[in-house]
Design a binder for these strands. Structure first.
Lengths: 346, 346
DNA sequence: CTGAAAGCGCTTACAG
DNA sequence: CTGAAAGCGCTTACAG
């Protein structure tokens, strides 16, 4: 609550409020001499410029973009996840280009956050319920949904996870691998789950739709080599579960190649391999999904899929800033070959 | 711009604007029966609740905290730096506790960002000019400065970097090391700079005041062992410079212990050592500064200082939310011993 | 518990 | 280029 307001400086400078307002918002409209007088008065009174609250009511631009956290995440969760962090960074790049602030809206506040956040548009980081979308739609703010396509009336940016999964498995197949194991994503807390070979994969064998697409990509590549995903031992676990890697090694001792749906899990596989004295990539090849700096610094550096998270965030934000009619974009991920994969040796 | 406003639903429900407002803001004040009538009207008209812009003007809480980026950084820079990311995460934790949004205010927008950002308070992530502080002060918003103490009229949260530097050097000294090299921080872009042994360290031998404190901590510990920091070869480089580690190895081939002011630099030392076939920690010990996940996953896992970035962010945000009189806090960093340090062997 | 009225601080046509 | 006036959409005492 600045104590001095526009009318005070107007009075002090001997002009009307309108003119004083123009000095701050449309300086070109005011004769330099008068302008300086107003500016001097403002300085003398310690006036900082128009109160953002009041200016907002009339001119209505927040100059900020809101990124709504994935379901149940708070602000800190959004900031703690390295993959999500790359996505945020992409949004940030577009903000910098537009000179806008980035506001992280926790999903925890639910509809209240959508209704009251001071932003010009929303990006939905990872959606579980469409209710939020409807709320946002009613605020008539531009918005885009990421990772999921809720239909032609909404803008969306997705990455073709099926293609990513396919590329990962194809790479291993090309290296001659035929005995696989899969570390799948469990998107809610819970103990690792073993899905033994030889039985059909239930629909929830992977976490989110994106994860299911990765699995589908694996399956397609394997099928081309005459293998069935149903015969590949799988463990499904949250990405930070410390025991999943061990469970997978125990369940699939004969595997020469491991496909993991997350980077963090893939890195924990590397660690577990070291513990068991299994040489990567000489005896075992590992491919992760998504790329974060850890994947470059771990030992050996991880072959993984570049999930294009930065690009995804940047494009989503650009679409929000553009305020146009709905666009539905799909990006194609790329394989990054590092040192955790090699031709099969047995 | 929602088309339907409070007065429309008030009319439709046959009540006054004030009552309709109460339904949304103070439901307890309105008879349930009437309330339902208003709510029904709101639903029927597709009214989402009071326009945040207008409500703001009267009630004035943004429900958000602004984190102003370090000098010259944009939003994306803030999100790309892993150490700064931990700090942001700490702020996020406090936001979650308070149910507030976190808004990243790029320093690039300068005073405009401070003047117009829609936040209830500011955290200054890393300050170069005090102008911004003065601006913010004029907005009469609670704020805290991090990493630097601008005096008793401002709240500040610092980490005792001198103590951190001391602990790092002390640890190496305790392991018997006597031949050191230092990888120092250059906070602006530029080629690595060699500061050979045997000459006094210029004041800018380290980047920011915090970095200079680290250096001072190194120097104090060394002095206790009868060594002068002036006799320790130093290279000063930006944390992402790829050639700094090599330059340091060349300049100090006889060193058995390397002190680095950043984690990323320390990790690059590990990589360079591997390239040169120098065994860490058997032949060379390395201590970094600050802890990020890479430091745990690199090989060998890095001994480093926990710079308490998360705690720093959390405490800073708590001080902002508390809106009290200025507090000046200093946190004490801790040494994290992992596998990159060992007793000296020669 | 409800309604009529004032006003938050500014911006923006509009007339000059 | 400047000033007088209306009004952005809501909240909040206040009187009832």
């Amino acid at each position: 609550m600045p104590l001095v307001k526009l009318i005070d400086v107007a009075k002090a400078a001997g002009v009307s409020r309108g003119t004083a307002s123009n000095v701050f918002n449309n300086p070109d409209l005011v004769r330099p001499q008068l302008r300086e007088k107003v500016e001097a008065a403002a300085r003398a009174l310690g006036y900082l410029g128009p109160d953002p609250k009041a200016r907002l009511l009339r001119s209505g631009k927040f100059n900020a973009i809101g990124v709504v956290s994935p379901a149940d995440w708070g602000v800190a969760d959004s900031l703690a996840n390295p993959v999500y962090g790359k996505f945020l960074r992409g949004v940030g790049e577009a903000c910098d280009a537009a000179g806008a602030n980035l506001v992280i809206v926790p999903d925890k506040t639910r509809s209240a956050g959508i209704r009251t956040s001071l932003v010009d548009g929303f990006i939905f980081g990872r959606l579980e319920h469409l209710d939020q979308l409807r709320m946002a739609k009613m605020r008539r703010l531009p918005m885009v949904v990421v990772d999921v396509d809720p239909g032609p009336e909404f803008s969306s940016v997705r990455v073709d996870a099926r293609a990513g999964g396919y590329a990962a498995a194809r790479h291993l197949l090309d290296l001659g691998h035929r005995r696989f194991a899969v570390l799948s994503f469990l998107r809610h807390a819970g103990p690792p789950r073993l899905l033994p070979a030889g039985q059909p994969r239930p629909p929830d064998a992977a976490g989110m739709p994106t994860d299911q697409e990765k699995l589908q990509g694996y399956a397609e590549a394997l099928a081309e080599a005459g293998l069935s995903i149903d015969d590949v031992p799988m463990v499904q676990a949250p990405p930070d579960d410390p025991s999943a890697a061990a469970m997978l090694f125990d369940a699939a001792p004969e595997a020469t190649a491991i496909l993991s749906m997350s980077v963090m899990q893939a890195i924990s596989v590397l660690t577990e391999a070291r513990r068991r004295n299994i040489k990567v990539p000489a005896q075992l090849s590992v491919v992760g999904y998504n790329d974060i700096t850890d994947a470059k610094h771990c030992s050996p550096p991880l072959t993984t899929i570049d999930g294009l998270n930065v690009e995804k965030g940047r494009l989503a934000a650009e679409i929000v800033f553009a305020k146009g009619s709905p666009r539905r974009e799909v990006l194609s991920p790329r394989l990054i070959i590092r040192a955790s994969t090699a031709p099969v040796s047995r």
